[in-house]
Each structure stands twice: as C-alpha cells, then as structure tokens.
C-alpha cells in the first residue's frame, strides 16, 4: 500500500522552544538572509512557531502553534501553478520541482497558511559556512519558490532502504528533522494509511482539529489542543 505521510502537532506538549526551526534550517539548507533582507520580510523559515497572546496583564496567557506546510490533499498552491512545479507526489506530499518553477509566486499567494518562501536572490554562505550544507538537499536559486518538504530526502532514503530489504518503513523509524529535534515530542510524523501508526491514532484524538479546515484544502497535519486542568482532574 502507498504511504500517506502526515503529522500531528500536540499543542499540549509544545513549549515554543523553536528547536524545530533551527533543525529545519540545518537539515534543509535554508539560507540565512541577514538583517537587512529579514527586515524586508524575506527571512525563510519553513516551520515557524506562531504565538498568540490572550488576555491582558496580569491575566494573560500565550498559545504557541508551530506552522509548516500542511501537505494539503487538495492543495490550492498546486492548482494555480502554470508549470506544475507545485504538484502532488505519489505519497500524497505536496512537492516542489525547483527547476520547473518560474517564480510567478501564484502558489505563495494561493496558500492560506503562508508557508511558501521565495528566493529573492541567490543564497550565499560566507565560507566556510558552506561546509554545513546537507549534500542530500539541493540548493535553491534565485527566482524559485520553496517550502517544507517533510524532509523528503529522508523519506526517499528510508523508502529505498526498506525496498532493498523488502519491508515496510517501521512506524517511528523515519522522522523529519523538526520532529527529531523536538525535545517535548510535540511533533509526531508517520503514515496515515497505517491505522496502527502513532500519527494515525493521534489524528483521531478528540483534541484534534485542522487549520482553516473549512476551506477544504484537506491538510494532513492535525493539531491537538491543550488539555485544561480542572480541580476534578486531580
């Protein structure tokens, strides 16, 4: 059976620490754009942690929400791409073919989650920072759109290793960089087609919901909301 990769983000575990953010940079060769470009809104973070203040001092609370590409089953970013650079692959992932992308940025406008990032210039690594680059991940040039791939290079490697041994990828043995780094274990990745996988079971949690679900993009990331404490829990 085909894989259908998905993720659960457990907001009850997430501490807003952002280990996931730097892990993604390191794994996927995201460029650091520098202060001037960042000030123009060009910083790239395939995963970001949104924070929402609620209430006023002193009765104030914060909610964190890691947001990355939701790997939509019915992805608006795909429908608008004139070159099919943004397309659905065989595992149900929204993939981006960099050398097909002509930089119209229609996809970036169509994505309601704001997770696509445009390369406004050639990325640079002041030497020898280029030594940190992951040889398994291609570099994107100026004029190309990019976004979270669920660490597709890891998926490919795990698939070919499993195929060579004629077995399926074991649940939990494959993780994107963000999930691997996350100290709190807030990010759970796996195959939604396997009903026994942790991600499939957690996706069915009554705490679960999807971002902007009513827009019909069929995101494959489920958010589990925080569990409240009441005297009766005790």
């Amino acid at each position: 059976m085909a894989y259908r990769w998905g993720m659960v983000v457990d907001l009850d575990r997430c501490t807003g620490c952002e280990a996931c953010v730097t892990a993604c940079h390191a794994e996927n060769n995201l460029p650091t754009v520098g202060a001037d470009e960042a000030a123009r809104g060009r910083a790239m973070h395939w995963i970001r942690v949104e924070r929402y203040w609620e209430g006023e001092f002193p009765d104030v609370r914060v909610k964190f929400r890691p947001v990355l590409c939701q790997q939509c089953g019915n992805a608006p970013c795909e429908a608008v791409c004139p070159t099919y650079a943004s397309h659905q692959n065989e595992d149900g992932l929204n993939a981006q073919v960099y050398n097909r992308c002509i930089g119209t940025r229609y996809c970036g406008n169509a994505c309601m989650y704001n997770v696509r990032f445009f390369n406004f210039f050639h990325p640079q690594w002041e030497k020898p920072l280029q030594l940190q680059l992951n040889p398994d991940v291609s570099l994107r040039e100026s004029g190309v759109m990019e976004k979270c791939t669920f660490c597709v290079q890891r998926i490919k490697a795990a698939k070919s290793a499993a195929k060579a041994e004629d077995r399926a990828i074991a649940d939990g043995s494959l993780q994107p960089a963000c999930a691997q780094a996350c100290p709190a274990g807030a990010l759970v990745f796996g195959d939604l087609n396997d009903p026994e996988s942790r991600v499939a079971r957690l996706s069915a949690s009554p705490r679960g919901s999807k971002l902007l679900e009513d827009l019909g993009a069929e995101p494959k990331i489920t958010y589990l909301h925080r569990q409240g404490w009441h005297e009766s829990n005790a």
Binding site: A19, P128, A181
Partner: peptide, 29 residues
C-alpha cells in the same frame, strides 16, 4: 553536516535544543 541528540545519552535522549542545533556553526564560522 548536522547534529542530532544522541538517543543513548541520558540527558539529551535523542533531542537537542535550538542552540544545540546551531552548534555546527561554531566550527564553520
């Protein structure tokens, strides 16, 4: 090319904090 937590280590337990993820840049600075 990348640092991960060592799953066999009792403190990191296979995880790293945001700063530990960036420690690679100390070497290649």
């Amino acid at each position: 090319r990348k640092l991960e937590g060592d799953p066999a280590h009792g403190v990191s337990q296979g995880r790293l904090c945001v700063r530990g993820q960036a420690a690679l840049q100390v070497t290649y600075h």
